[in-house]
Design a binder for these strands. Structure first.
Lengths: 274, 274
DNA sequence: CCGCTTCGATACCCGTACGGTATGGGTCCG
DNA sequence: CGGACCCATACCGTACGGGTATCGAAGCGG
């Protein structure tokens, strides 16, 4: 399965073999054997190019999920033993959910059955994979930006959004703005967020990988951005103008649905009481 | 992984080996190698008994999920090719959701991009595993009875519940009943539904596996049961008395979250328009 | 138009790792 | 104390995965 996913992603046996650390002929053979075992043609090969068939595309999707599940099994099992390891790994976007995160960690630490929690801060669009492949046990996600597909969730906070501007910007004296106004501030093109597949839409604004980078770009006067109001408390030197017509942002705690960890259940219970 | 799950479920190397179709010594060795590779003790063995460690319990959970994902990948890939196979497999509880199901199938069949749909009817608590391991692509579930953990869902219908009685039962002339009344009808002990782990609670009523069996038991005057009103249309010879204080039942369509099938998306879109 | 390059498939060889049988050793029971 | 039970160890054979060398088809440039 690892072999097939590599080939399907590279669409090139040579590069896939390199990535897998094996030679190309065994890889070709392995894929042929897989096709034979399934009774299905997964790849259309010409001597110049490789293309996925319909069935191949299905197996790429499903196979990725299965490999993630396997990796998750291995990681979580390793962590379940070894007392040095943290009891729970919580993943959050760097620079987001600061207040809520601190409150949650404090409240949980005060619980009688609390275990050590490791906080893992990562970029945008990195939380879901981490949760799926077992690097993390629980995440703080933000609706409607993040997708919660396939996870159990509990809402823990909701807040309005504001447009974040460089301090002293002429518009920072405004009482409120509309989304349309915030997206068309002269000289401050809106930042571009990654799409579902990791690519970026076209446009004049900078490409964003995480919140720290984003807020620095705002401070430098290169962009403006609509974000939950609470980020204001994270950085000085930025102005925030409420945007009433932007959707409210809901912070949710999310975890893999089959999890039966008592520590996780306790953390979630704490979160719902915030 | 298959080997470990077998041993963890049987808690007996000999039986597990039998189930796996291999001899016992290679199985012992395989488990030891797994433990060594993970650097974790998974099983506490004495010469008389085998017990799971904490880490072993984690691996049993996660490993089951991973094996399901692998099986799903294999099944869905096989079905994605082979034009004889149905394009979608929809699983529903036998005897439930009759009207909604028929309406959904009709509406979907009228869509321009409809593919053949195979309907798989199964017992209670069988839908979730079927969806997870790829035997089915989409399910009709009923809240709050079924758990939708780990699936994407869309609501398609909601209805009141009624207590289903043998025709001619003295109470069948009532305009309505309370839950408390319905659960304590003399001579008609409430049926016992399976719990999450497949076992049954104690009590006088019969153990239920599917709705067909249940309705037959009602017709025979052996039990009474609170069910969504629509089941009344399925069977003649039964009476239904509304139970206003029972929770309303919501029928949802559920599917694995990572699915990207166009046919499934179309079916879901049809369902939401019902 | 012909070589050269590119890329997947084939042929062949080798080592390892998996599966099988036989047996050992600890524990509980009669 | 012997026997039954059950997991571990020892040993052996084979089959499968991986490596190298090479082929054959398809673009592409001179």
């Amino acid at each position: 399965m690892r072999y097939f996913v590599a080939v399907a992603e590279e669409l090139h046996f040579g590069r896939a073999a390199l990535r897998l650390g094996i030679a190309q002929p065994p890889l070709s053979r392995a894929i042929r054997q897989l096709e034979h075992r399934l009774g299905v043609t997964l790849l259309e090969r010409t001597s110049r190019a490789v293309a996925l068939t319909e069935a191949g595309a299905v197996l790429l999707d499903e196979g990725r999920a299965a490999l993630d599940a396997m990796a998750a099994a291995e990681r979580r099992t390793r962590r379940a033993s070894s007392p040095g390891a943290p009891g729970l790994v919580l993943v959050s976007k760097a620079g987001a959910a600061g207040e809520v995160l601190a409150k949650l960690l404090d409240a949980y630490a005060a619980e009688p059955d609390a275990v050590p929690v490791e906080v893992m801060l990562c970029g945008i669009r990195e939380q879901e994979p981490a949760l799926r492949d077992g690097r993390a046990d629980v995440a703080l996600l933000h609706l409607p930006f993040d997708s919660v597909a396939g996870f159990d969730t509990e809402e823990i906070a909701t807040e309005r959004q504001a447009v974040i501007l460089p301090a002293g910007h002429p518009l920072s004296v405004r009482e409120s703005m509309t989304v349309a106004e915030a997206l068309s501030i002269p000289g401050l093109p809106p930042a571009r967020w990654p799409l579902g597949d990791g690519s970026y839409p076209d446009g004049p604004g900078p490409e964003i990988h995480d919140h720290a980078q984003l807020l620095q770009l705002v401070a430098l006067g290169r962009t403006a951005v609509i974000l939950p109001e609470s980020v204001r408390s994270l950085v000085t030197g930025l102005a925030a103008v409420p945007v009433p017509d932007a959707p409210r942002v809901t912070t949710v705690v999310a975890w893999p649905p089959h999890s039966r960890s008592r520590a996780l259940a306790s953390l979630v219970r704490t979160a719902t009481r915030l």
